[in-house]
Every structure is written in structure tokens, then in C-alpha cells.
């Protein structure tokens, strides 16, 4: 045989069967694959359906009563009256969520930095254990604890109901989320980068503040925003701490504060059309707030470089 005429195997004559001949159980395997794909699709649909129903309910009922007036006026004194809005609740929710973020974000980031810089530190396992437990604590109980510690005059600080007490309870709800998501994000920063910083003569705090935190910044922001969104949607911990108000409250302490969730609770519990309509619009507003925050978070996360 000459070198320049390569042997081409003949599919008919070769000792290997043609590629068009399949193995005996191929048909069965293809069938199982198709069934499994279908089952998974159904499972995904089942998981998404409740969310879709929830969104549809809120949109269809809340869109009608939602208006500029709803955002800029306060609720009429009687639940029977239609019109008016949740300005006081929106202000209260944003106010308390903002103060809660100011409390929980620095604390949570600091704890996360500690957990990543000293993963086997003396307090690391304690911090991890408590953040895990705090994630599971019923939020109404958080409100009760803050009531006993801050609001109540007997045994507590006696601050009374108000913005600060509400914000404190929201901060407790948000803290473990900030810690956990920030820890995950800081862990994603490649060790190479820290090594490089140390190799250039950085001290530990310099490596943390100038390399690790900036590299993780988009991810950290995402986690923080999601925690804020979670806090903004909470109602139960505010029942015993903010209490609720019927006007716009700007004081930090000394006066009960309003909240969208609390107003919705009140509105739905009355048998009057006006109150119920406003409650639906309130739900719509809350979804707008949390959805907006989540979308911002996703957009920032996409810009991440790690």
C-alpha cells in the first residue's frame, strides 16, 4: 500500500457497525430522558405558579385604586371613605427601612469580614450559629423582643412605640441576611488577589479595605439591597414596635410610626370597600418597592467582575 492513499473504512464492510445502528436500550433511555424533562418542567411550573397568582392578584386588584393621589395623600379618617392614600405608610416604611439599613449594614459587613478573615477565629462559629438561628426566628417574636427591650418602660429602655423601635426590629431581621450574603460574596474574591496585596506589602486591613471589599462590592451591594427589600416587606415585627399611625411621622422616637404593611392589615380587617381598596393598592406599592430594589440588585450584580 502506498503512503499517500489513506485507508478509508467502508461503513458496510467494516467490523464496527454503522453509526446509524443504535444500542438495544437506546429507545428506552431516550424515553426516560423525555419523561424526566417533562417532570422537571412541571415541577418548575408548580414552583412558579403561586408567585404568578400572587402577582396577578395584587396587580389586578391594586392597579385600580393605585394612583398619584394614593402616593401623595394620607388615609381618610373613616375606612368607609374611598380615595386618600398611604403617604404616611410609605414614609414610615422607607424611614424605618432606611434606619434599619444604617444599623444592620455596617454591623453585618463587619461580621462578614470577620468571618472571612478569621474563618476559624474564636467567635466565628458562635457568630455563624447565631446568624443561622436568627434567620429562623419568627419575625413577630423579634418584634416582641424589641418591645421588651426598647419600647416597654418596665424592664426595657422605655423609648415607646416609634420609628427607632420599628427600625431596630427590622435591623434584626435584616442582619443575618446581610451577614450571610456578604460572607458568600467575600469568599468569592479569589485568594490570588489577597496574596498579591500581601506580596506588595499590604497589611491585613489594607488588603481587606483596598482589595477584598472593592472586588466584592457589586456582590455586597446586591446582598444588602435584597436584605433591605426583605426588611421593607416585613409587617409582623412592627406590630409591637411601630404600632402604626394615621399621619406622617418624622420623629425618630416618641410617636408611633405608620407602615404600609400595618395599614394594609388594618384596611383588610374592616368590612368597608374604601379601606380594602387602599390595602390592595398598598400591597401593589410594596411589591413595586421590593421588586424595584431586587431589579437594582440584579443590575449591580451583573456588573460584578469576579
Amino acid at each position: 500500500m502506498s503512503v499517500d492513499t489513506p485507508v478509508r473504512p467502508d461503513p458496510e464492510a467494516g467490523d464496527r457497525p454503522s453509526l446509524t445502528v443504535t444500542t438495544p436500550n437506546a429507545r428506552r433511555r431516550a424515553l426516560i430522558s423525555r419523561i424526566m424533562s417533562g417532570a422537571l418542567f412541571l415541577a418548575v411550573m408548580a414552583a412558579v405558579t403561586p408567585l404568578a397568582i400572587l402577582l396577578w392578584q395584587t396587580l389586578s386588584n391594586g392597579w385600580g385604586p393605585f394612583s398619584w393621589e394614593f402616593l401623595t395623600t394620607i388615609e381618610p379618617l373613616s375606612y368607609r371613605e374611598t380615595g386618600g392614600g398611604y403617604l404616611h405608610g410609605i414614609v414610615g416604611t422607607l424611614y424605618m427601612t432606611g434606619v434599619a439599613a444604617l444599623i444592620s449594614v455596617p454591623l453585618g459587613l463587619a461580621a462578614a469580614v470577620y468571618l472571612t478573615e478569621r474563618p476559624k477565629g474564636r467567635y466565628a462559629s458562635i457568630v455563624r450559629f447565631f446568624t443561622d438561628v436568627m434567620t429562623g426566628v419568627p419575625s413577630v417574636f423579634v418584634g416582641l423582643a424589641v418591645y421588651a427591650l426598647l419600647v416597654s418602660g418596665s424592664g426595657g429602655l422605655g423609648l415607646g412605640f416609634g420609628t427607632l423601635a420599628g427600625a431596630a426590629s427590622l435591623a434584626i431581621i435584616m442582619l443575618p441576611i446581610v451577614v450571610r450574603s456578604s460572607e458568600e460574596m467575600l469568599r468569592l474574591v479569589p485568594g490570588d488577589l489577597k496574596q498579591a496585596a500581601y506580596g506588595l506589602g499590604a497589611r491585613q486591613w489594607q488588603a481587606t479595605f483596598k482589595v477584598t471589599l472593592p472586588a466584592a462590592a457589586p456582590g455586597l451591594t446586591t446582598g444588602v439591597i435584597l436584605a433591605v427589600a426583605r426588611g421593607a416587606g416585613e409587617t409582623a415585627p412592627l406590630i409591637l414596635t411601630a404600632l402604626g399611625a394615621r399621619e406622617v411621622v418624622l420623629r425618630l422616637t416618641g410617636a408611633p410610626q405608620a407602615d404600609i404593611g400595618l395599614l394594609m392589615l388594618d384596611g383588610f380587617r374592616q368590612p368597608f370597600e374604601g379601606g380594602i381598596e387602599r390595602a390592595w393598592a398598598g400591597g401593589f406599592t410594596l411589591i413595586l418597592i421590593t421588586l424595584g430594589l431586587s431589579i437594582i440588585a440584579r443590575m449591580i450584580a451583573r456588573r460584578s467582575q469576579i
Binding site: P190, L193, A197, G199, G201, V211
Partner: peptide
């Protein structure tokens, strides 16, 4: 480390 610098196996510029 400021006197004795280091270059690593994998190029590791900061995301800056």
C-alpha cells in the same frame, strides 16, 4: 515584602 517583591503563577491583577 516591600523589599522582596513577588510575582505569582497566575497573572492576578486587581479588578482596578
Amino acid at each position: 515584602r516591600r523589599r522582596i517583591g513577588m510575582v505569582f503563577q497566575k497573572p492576578n491583577p486587581f479588578p482596578k
